[in-house]
Every structure is written in C-alpha cells, then in structure tokens.
Design a protein around this nucleic acid. Sequence first.
DNA 1: CCGTCTTTACTTGTATGGAAGTTCGCGCTA
DNA 2: TAGCGCGAACTTCCATACAAGTAAAGACGG
Lengths: 227, 227
Amino acid sequence: MADDPAPLPLPRSASTAQQVHDWLYSCVLRGDLLPGQRLSETEIAARVGLSRQPVREAFIRLAENGLAEIRPQRGTYIGRISMRAVLSARLIREAVESDLARRVAGLRPDLSALHAQIAAQQMAHAAEDVPAFIEADDRFHAAMAEAAGAPEVWQDLDRLKAQMNRLRHLSMRVFDRAATMAQHRAILEALEAGDAGAAEAAVRAHLRQMLDELPQMAAAHPAYFTD
Amino acid sequence: MADDPAPLPLPRSASTAQQVHDWLYSCVLRGDLLPGQRLSETEIAARVGLSRQPVREAFIRLAENGLAEIRPQRGTYIGRISMRAVLSARLIREAVESDLARRVAGLRPDLSALHAQIAAQQMAHAAEDVPAFIEADDRFHAAMAEAAGAPEVWQDLDRLKAQMNRLRHLSMRVFDRAATMAQHRAILEALEAGDAGAAEAAVRAHLRQMLDELPQMAAAHPAYFTD
DNA sequence: CCGTCTTTACTTGTATGGAAGTTCGCGCTA
DNA sequence: TAGCGCGAACTTCCATACAAGTAAAGACGG
C-alpha cells in the first residue's frame, strides 16, 4: 500500500519557488520587509526574473507560515506582528524551555556548546552586529534543547519563534543586550550547578523579559502591530 | 508606510484552492488518505473538476503543514508519521498544558465547558463514534486553555497536534477509550479542587499515555511511520 | 460644490501548454 | 540468462494567457 521510502531526503538544489520563499522569509525576519508593506506578484517576479507562478507559490508558503496575508483580488501584504501570537509563543517557550532546563540540570551533560554560544554572543555584542547577536541567542537555546536530548523540539518552536524574532530585530537596537547576556550566564550557571529549580527560574525570568519589550515596541510602532 | 488595515478579515468564500486544501487536510487527519500514499495533481484535479494549478497550491500548503512531501519531478506523497515529530509535539503539549492546568487551578474559573465536553465524549463513546470522540477530546483541551485565559495557545498547538491526531485515528479503534475519559475526569476533579500540583500531575499522566501507544502503533503499521 | 455612477487600471485566481527531470520497462547485446 | 541502454510515459515545475474581482480616479448630473 505505502510506496517506497525516500532514499535521498536531501534536496540538492531547491526549486526556484523555494528559493524565492527563503529569500522573502529572511527579509521579513530581518525587518527588510516591514509589517503591512505591500507585496506584488508581478513586481517581485520582474525583480527576480521569473514568472508570477513561482512567486505566487512563495507567497502562499509565507502566508501559511503566518508572515504574509493574502487578500483575494486585493493584494498581498506582509503580516503585522500579532501581539496575541507573540504572547502565545512566549508562553509556550517559557513552558517548554523551563521543562527542558530541568532535564538538563538533572542529566548533567556536556555544556561546552552553550559556553561557545555565549562567547559568540559576546563577540557579536562587541562588534554591534545585531543579526549575529540574535543568531547566537537562538543557538544558545537550541544547544540547550540538544543538551536535554530533544533537539527536534527546537525545530517545532522555530515557527512560533519567527514572530518573536521579528519583534527582536526591531527592539534589539533599543534594548539592553548586556542584560540578555547576563540572563544567559545565569541559566548556564544553574545548569552547571545541576540546580533544576534555579535553572527553571532563570529561564522563566529570561523569557519574561519580552513582556516588557512588547508593549514598548507596540507603542513606538503601532502600525506594525495588531490586536 | 504601512497600508490600511483589513476591514473584514473574514473571507466570505475561500478560494477553490483553499477548499481543496481543507478537504485534503481533513482526509489526511481522518485517515482517509494513508501515510505514504501517492497524490497526483492531475488525478485530484480531474476528481474535483479543476485545473492542476489550484490543486498544486493545495499540495504546497499541505507540505508546509507537514502533511505531505513533494519530491520534485517525482511525485507528491502523503507524509509518513514522523515518530520524532510526534514525540516532540507530545513533549511540548505536556509542558504547555501542565502549565495551563496550574493556572486554571489558581484562577478557579467557570469550568462548565469542560463538563460539557466530558458529557459529549461520553455520548460519542457510547455511540462508538470515534471521530466525534476525538473531537470532544480536543475541545476539552481547548476549553482548558480558554479557562486559563490563553485560548490562542491552543491554536498554536493545532499544527503540532495534527501529527498526533493522525496517530490517534489509527489507535483509537484499538486503545481503551474509557481510560482516556477517566483521565479527563481526574484532571477536571483536580481543577475544581484548585489543586495545582494534582492538576499538573493528572495532565502529565494523561499526555504520557501516548508514549505507550506510539511504539505499539509503529510496530503494527511500520509502513506508516518514519524515524 | 457635492454626490454618484462609470470607466480604467490594477490585483489575485484559474486554465493550459510546454520544459525539465525521473522512473519503469522493453529490447538489445554479450 | 544476466546486464546494459534507450525510449516512452509519467511526474512536478515554470511560463503565459485569460477570467474575475477590487479600488481608485474621473466624468456627469444635481
């Protein structure tokens, strides 16, 4: 009944539609495309030298990932940052990652990867490289998931994280990056000490920082948000 | 910079491509389309009386939701149930819903909606109506999220839940539905008593049941699973 | 001067044809 | 008979044309 299994799940070269999607995706997350901005199939198609069809399919993927809104016969727009979605994603991350932190504290695994990401973040901070700083931040949390023996969990959180990352690219130029790093160090200290309670508290405190940032950013850029 | 906000976010009649997607989506979750089964653009298009294009776009959405796998120039197949994805989704649900249960126990809100879903599940169980049973199960958990003051969290969990629901439609004909209902009653009892610790324990125990079901189903239908 | 209707220029949605690539099977060759 | 090669039939992918719908600008009537 079921057909043959895939022998090579690695696509050697993605389709052009996939490439267009990946490009737009990173543009949205980095803030090169701003919330509410209009996207035109024909314009993007001309810009990348393709027909409308692959661009259109890229839009569909974007919309399915919650990054764009297709209004039939009217236009496609970069989705505004839903405050409800951000708060929901934040709540989920807090619940999941605090659970993961407890596991890591109990397992006492090798934590050199987390040290490495903190070092990388330190360098990005010194160089004022905001994208690299955010990437190192993500890798720190991914390393924690891996240390907990559940690396695939971080993949599932990626989608939810997308909305949060958009917010961070707006706020990271304003907010205190040193405080973020201090929180990471506090988490790592608790993990190395094997103190599950302290690790959970540190993770929850770290992720609750966004509860302060969100209303400030929403007030500063009301056109970028909904809800 | 940002354009006008959407006045009517409610699409009165979705595009046909969207309808095709919704149809296929429910077919996959209900098990009418089995993991590994081949999908053909031309065949589906002929079956619904449309051209290949809207069907193709429905496939893209399915793939983006993790329910189908498009292998370029080779074919599109219903995705197999990834054991890693199921375990990851289960872990996330346990972490999030145990947190929500603690909140509900502290808030002491109106819990009549949960009672109603248990009653509905009892009726579905008596009528041997498996889909209705599963739907009532989902509504119970959704009602708990709403009682915790975070209904949007359940929406985010829907995507992850999709993989789990596919598994349940396979296993619900085999496994003990009475045990599931007893677990729901235990959760509700703890919530009504306002006992956060007991509520969390009951939720975790309920969601850990899948750890038993998954290997059994994977052994019974190895062709439907990967990892 | 203001309101209303019509036209026109856009948008996305769908249909169709062909291009690129994969798979399977038949026939040839050793 | 076993192995190789080629071709036919299939797949998804992309390009193009057309259809349906929206919105805004302008003409017209009051």
